[in-house]
Computed example of a mutant assay.
Amino acid sequence: MRGPRSIEIWKMGAVNYLEALKLQEKLTSDRKTHKIKDTLLSLQHPPTFTLGKRRTVHNVLVSEAELKAMGAELHYTERGGDVTFHGPHQAVLYPIISLRDIRIGARKYVENLESTMIELASLYGVKARAGHTGETGVWVGHRKIGAIGVRISSGITSHGLAFNIDPDLNYFKHIVPCGIADKEVTSLQKEVGKVLPSEQVIHEQLISSFVKVFGYTDVTWRDKTSDDKE
């Protein structure tokens, strides 16, 4: 009989993208050497565009100088997936977990991330679905509400998912989101059309959905929103 499946949740608030990237690299290394248990970072970023390891720069429709002029950063990453946007009023989860320990493969891992966002949307009466072939992420009809881009190294995950609560959707007009042309991007607020609970509540509901979908039974919380960020 297997013991409890444990995870530590870090609630981090707003975090600069490069700071979060550096933290993920450290935690991934620590997880590989068993210094830490599975860890989930819950946060949001200032306006940031990121490219995956395929470097599909052609899907960024304006110059880097123009992005800077609008107060946004552009970063190159080693995750899978295409170009995407992160910003305020978007819930981001970065799982640093051992797929070997929880005994699932890469495909099932991505499906679980999709299910996490689908479950959150369902709490608000929004019927979301996983993408069809060639469509990554989570969709409401033909409108994308959640993005997924992951990296798996020696069975340890990093990067993760981004769910649109109520971001400024105009930022997405400057890219071909996830490399999929002629499809809209949407948000929970746009789909629900009425006052939502606080974003803190929605972030916690997303975490709860993740914990449920992945079957964690022993959850500890760590508030990293103050000056003790590592």
Rank of each mutant, 00 (worst) to 15 (best):
M1L: 08
P4Q: 12
P4H: 11
I7C: 02
K11I: 04
G13D: 03
A14E: 14
A14N: 12
A14W: 10
N16M: 02
L21Y: 06
K22Q: 05
Q24F: 09
Q24P: 07
E25L: 05
K26A: 15
L27Y: 11
S29E: 13
D30R: 13
R31D: 05
R31A: 10
D38T: 04
T39D: 06
L40T: 00
L41D: 08
S42R: 00
H45G: 03
T48S: 14
T50W: 09
R54E: 03
R55D: 09
V57L: 12
N59S: 07
V60W: 01
L61S: 08
E64H: 07
E64R: 13
E66K: 15
L67Y: 10
K68D: 11
A69E: 14
A69S: 15
M70H: 12
G71C: 11
G71W: 11
E73C: 11
L74T: 06
H75S: 13
Y76I: 15
Y76W: 15
E78M: 01
R79T: 05
R79Q: 04
R79Y: 06
F85H: 11
I96W: 08
S98A: 12
L99G: 09
L99I: 06
R100F: 01
R100W: 02
R100D: 11
D101V: 03
R103P: 01
Y109R: 07
V110L: 02
E111M: 10
E111C: 08
E114K: 10
E114H: 12
S115Y: 04
M117P: 06
M117L: 03
I118S: 11
I118Y: 06
E119T: 13
E119K: 14
E119G: 12
S122H: 13
Y124L: 03
K127Y: 02
A128F: 10
A128E: 08
A128N: 04
R129Y: 00
R129T: 15
G131H: 05
H132N: 02
H132E: 11
E135K: 05
E135W: 12
E135C: 00
T136S: 14
V140P: 02
V140H: 06
G141D: 02
G141R: 01
G141K: 05
H142R: 15
H142N: 15
A147M: 14
A147E: 15
G149A: 15
S154A: 15
I156A: 03
I156W: 04
S158M: 15
H159P: 12
L161R: 06
F163M: 14
F163C: 04
N164A: 02
N164H: 05
I165D: 04
N170Y: 07
F172H: 08
H174P: 09
V176P: 14
P177V: 05
P177R: 09
G179T: 13
G179I: 11
I180S: 01
A181G: 11
D182G: 01
E184I: 01
K190D: 11
K194C: 00
K194L: 00
V195L: 08
P197S: 09
E199H: 13
I202R: 10
H203N: 13
H203C: 12
I207Q: 03
I207F: 08
S208L: 13
S208I: 01
S209V: 08
F210I: 09
V213H: 06
G215A: 09
Y216T: 04
T217E: 14
D218F: 00
V219A: 05
T220P: 03
T220Y: 04
T220A: 01
S226Q: 14
